[in-house]
């Protein structure tokens, strides 16, 4: 898969079909990968595909001018389709190099599982439904579901629907909603007061670094409402009330465009369980309007159209 990607990327740049290639290269830390954005065809050999390609590269698309070849997992392709729906990206200007994705390994889950820092691990490899972790020369085997990201367990589209070049065999979806939706179910079992208290406490840790917003492919506003000063909707001081307000409104803004790719939760430096917000919003939009973000590039964006009769029950 990796070899094919390098060849294709090189060919695309050489033939002038694209101006840029966005992909992954090995990161500076062990196991990690980092985004590679390049114009140089020789850089194509640096591209990698492994179980640690976490980033949602669609985030870079609206900012890059020219034609772009982009490496996309299933979730990334949905974000790209969502951007096409919003007229942020022209379909013809993007060459999607589709990676059938078996799920991405969450290194912090691996660390928790073996009780070692990632620097102390010798190797983490995946074989089918098993993940093999080598520590101090000893091999340990775990079921792969224990180390995958939560959103990968709920993945509905491992292989991109919208692509130009498919690298590898398509994979069937196998969403495991029971495991990945556990936190939301637990929350729904609480009373409203307890839930509000829970979110207040979680968001009191927020340092307002806006990493969740910056990493989100659906958050592309030139000027975010939190930065507006006339009127000042949200105080810049990170108090829990304003943090919560920011997070609620952000989720409402991305409703119908959020594909539940889990990037916001991954990048959160204080580990706020943001996916319990995004996933609930995702399911809610599906239930109310039968709309799934990023599935159909011809579909109109959720908030720009309507049905004659829907969601009427609470109107007086």
């Amino acid at each position: 898969m990796e070899q094919k990607l390098r060849q294709e990327a090189k060919a695309l740049l050489e033939q002038g079909k694209v101006d840029w290639i966005i992909g992954f290269e090995p990161g500076s830390l062990k196991f990690t990968t980092t985004p590679l954005i390049t114009k140089d065809k020789n850089d194509a050999d640096r591209l990698v595909i492994n179980p640690f390609i976490v980033n949602n590269l669609a985030d870079f698309l609206p900012e890059i001018k020219g034609r772009v070849g982009i490496v996309a997992k299933g979730c990334d392709s949905r974000s790209i389709v969502s951007l096409i729906q919003d007229n942020k990206v022209v379909r013809e200007d993007v060459v999607i190099l589709a990676v059938p994705c078996p799920g991405i390994i969450d290194l912090s889950k691996v660390e928790r599982l073996v009780g070692k820092d990632r620097d102390e691990l010798d190797d983490v490899t995946r074989e089918g439904d098993k993940v093999i972790i080598k520590v101090n020369g000893k091999k340990k085997e775990f079921p792969v579901t224990e180390v995958l990201f939560d959103h990968c367990l709920a993945c509905e589209l491992p292989t991109p629907q919208e692509y130009d070049i498919l690298l590898g065999e398509p994979r069937p979806p196998a969403p495991n909603l029971e495991v990945s939706g556990k936190d939301i179910e637990n929350l729904k079992g609480l009373t409203p007061e307890q839930r509000w208290e829970f979110w207040g406490n979680e968001l009191s840790r927020c340092i307002r670094c806006y990493a969740c917003r910056n990493v989100c492919p659906a958050c592309y506003c030139q000027r975010c409402f939190v930065e507006e000063t006339e009127p000042q909707w949200v105080m810049p001081v990170p108090r829990w009330q304003d943090n919560l307000l920011f997070q609620i409104v952000r989720n409402i803004h991305v409703a119908g465009r959020c594909t539940d790719c889990g990037e916001c939760e991954r990048v959160c430096p204080v580990n706020i369980p943001l996916r319990s917000l995004t996933r609930e919003m995702y399911d809610m939009v599906d239930e109310l309007f039968h709309f799934k973000a990023g599935m159909d590039k011809e579909a109109l964006p959720l908030m720009t159209h309507y049905e004659q009769e829907e969601a009427e029950d609470f109107f007086r």
Partner: peptide, 16 residues
């Protein structure tokens, strides 16, 4: 209507 429906349901989930 779409916007308010989402806002209302989402806030209920959060405990409002």
């Amino acid at each position: 209507r779409r916007r308010i429906a989402i806002t209302k349901r989402f806030l209920e989930y959060l405990g409002v």
